[in-house]
């Protein structure tokens, strides 16, 4: 049973001005909280720092194959070599630079084995491998099902070895 006084409780939601000084304090507190959260996240993350023979082309490759986003502007020397660039692939951060032998920053050579390989989780390993191949990567092993995932291996045009990995799509219909 409701009467007029109870009916006064219903009705559309309305926004209400927050005290300005309190809002400023809360905004400041949230900024500090974000910085603390970011610092603790970065402290537990290993960031691959790739050295490549042509950083500009490498950025284009990672953008087109992995959908990477370039964060900020790359740092460059006067002669156009990139000393540092930052890419974001999903929640993963990637740094890269051109070769600087004086800083012992060399890139892998496609004719030799690489000591470090990069495994990256993607939405669809088949699509990523196809995009990599179309952009000049050398397919080392085609995508296949393994341990509940779909994964393949390719060597990118700059000598780095990648394994795009995605969840295996369950087969519809009768389980075999």
């Amino acid at each position: 049973m409701t009467d007029d006084s109870i009916a006064k409780l219903s009705g559309p939601e309305q926004s209400l001005e927050f005290d300005k000084a309190a809002a400023d304090q809360l905004r400041h507190r949230l900024e500090l909280q974000r910085l603390t959260t970011a610092a603790s996240t970065e402290a537990t993350q290993v960031i691959p720092y790739l050295t490549v023979a042509n950083a500009t082309r490498a950025i284009e490759f990672y953008v087109s194959v992995f959908g990477a986003t370039l964060i900020g502007e790359p740092f460059e020397t006067d002669d156009g070599k990139i000393t540092h660039a930052e890419l974001r692939i999903g929640s993963v951060t990637l740094y890269l630079s051109d070769i600087f032998l004086e800083a012992t920053a060399s890139s892998p050579d496609a004719t030799t084995n690489t000591a470090v390989s990069l495994v990256i989780h993607v939405a669809d390993a088949d699509l990523t491998m196809a995009a990599a191949q179309a952009s000049g990567a050398v397919i080392e092993r085609a995508v296949q099902d393994q341990w509940g995932t779909r994964a393949g291996w390719f060597v990118d045009p700059f000598g780095h070895r990648w394994s795009p990995t995605s969840h295996r799509t369950p087969t519809k219909g009768t389980f075999q």
């Binding site: 939601e13 926004s15 209400l16 809360l26």
Partner: peptide, 8 residues
């Protein structure tokens, strides 16, 4: 968002 949450 602040006035929405505060109003609610």
């Amino acid at each position: 968002a602040l006035p929405i949450v505060f109003g609610f």
